[in-house]
């Protein structure tokens, strides 16, 4: 089955076509925008790009993130306390787009999009160079307006399927997802877990038979071993909390010195490098 757009387009279409041609899978790190501030996030994005990240999911801090575990919640709280705003986000992505080759998507609550105005948010996202949006609290039934705005603007709207999604609904979600399909590994919130959930690989293989859209797997994935296992059947892996944990150090008083900050960034880059290598 094809997506509604037919062949993939835009920066994500090009990315996945390139990966396919090279026989590689995607590593998609998730980091919070503005933790500890947007200047540092810019450095982080450059480090991810250098380390071989295929694309980046940039978390937009939100005051009430019900799909997120403690690590990402705390990161959002730090960013908001440090004065994060949407204007700073768009400025950050504008500057980052000029410096990194990986496409950047925003992981953003629909509360934020709705408050700004759907058309205005999409226009701002497009103008700063974002490749797409992942909206974790926007189910199929409520998404027509944003879907239309994203299609018109040429932004991907990445949809999510979860272990609790019934099969027919999963097919419909896959059909309407653009850019890629986000396969949530577990029923639960974000956060590192020791083992991959039972049945995950089979679920991905089943999805694979239902859609041509690239499938990326996220939630609970933190180690190169897990990335490798997931990449064997999916088109890539998303790693979030395990990387966001690194961001916490940037605002710790004992790491305030420039040398310490540099070490933290280097550690993050090496971690992402190991994860990227595991995609094969």
């Amino acid at each position: 089955m094809k997506t509604e757009d037919g062949p993939l387009e835009g920066p994500l279409g090009k990315l996945f076509a390139d990966l396919k041609r090279e026989g590689r899978k995607a590593l998609a790190p998730f980091v919070t925008a503005g933790d500890p501030n947007c200047e540092k996030t810019l450095e982080v994005l450059e480090a991810l790009d250098r380390a071989g990240a295929s694309l980046c999911e940039l978390g937009v801090p939100y005051s009430d993130p019900i799909a997120d575990g403690a690590v990402i919640q705390s990161s959002y709280t730090r960013a908001l306390a440090a004065g994060f705003t949407l204007e700073k986000l768009f400025d950050l992505v504008r500057r980052a787009s000029a410096r990194v080759k990986m496409p950047i998507l925003a992981m953003v609550s629909y509360s934020i999009i709705y408050r700004r105005g759907i058309d205005r948010f999409v226009a701002d996202a497009k103008a700063c160079g974002m490749a797409g949006l992942v909206v974790p609290d926007l189910p199929l039934e409520e998404s027509d307006q944003l879907d239309q705005a994203c299609r018109t603007a040429g932004l991907a709207l990445v949809r999510l399927v979860t272990p609790t999604t019934p099969p027919a609904r999963a097919e419909e979600i896959a059909r309407r997802s653009t850019g890629f399909l986000y396969c949530v590994s577990v029923a639960g919130v974000t956060g590192a877990r020791t083992d991959l959930p039972a049945g995950l690989l089979e679920r991905i293989e089943w999805l694979r038979t239902k859609t041509d859209v690239p499938i990326l797997v996220g939630f609970g994935i933190s180690t190169p071993e897990q990335v490798k296992a997931v990449a064997a059947v999916a088109d890539g892996a998303i790693v979030g909390s395990a990387l966001v944990r690194h961001l916490e150090g940037f605002s710790a008083p004992q790491h305030a010195a420039p040398a310490a900050q540099g070490t933290l960034l280097k550690n993050l880059e090496e971690t992402v490098g190991r994860l990227a290598a595991a995609t094969g």
Partner: peptide, 12 residues
């Protein structure tokens, strides 16, 4: 009104 929740909760 409506239903703005993560997909995980849709089925429930």
């Amino acid at each position: 009104g409506g239903r703005y929740v993560p997909e995980t909760l849709s089925a429930a």
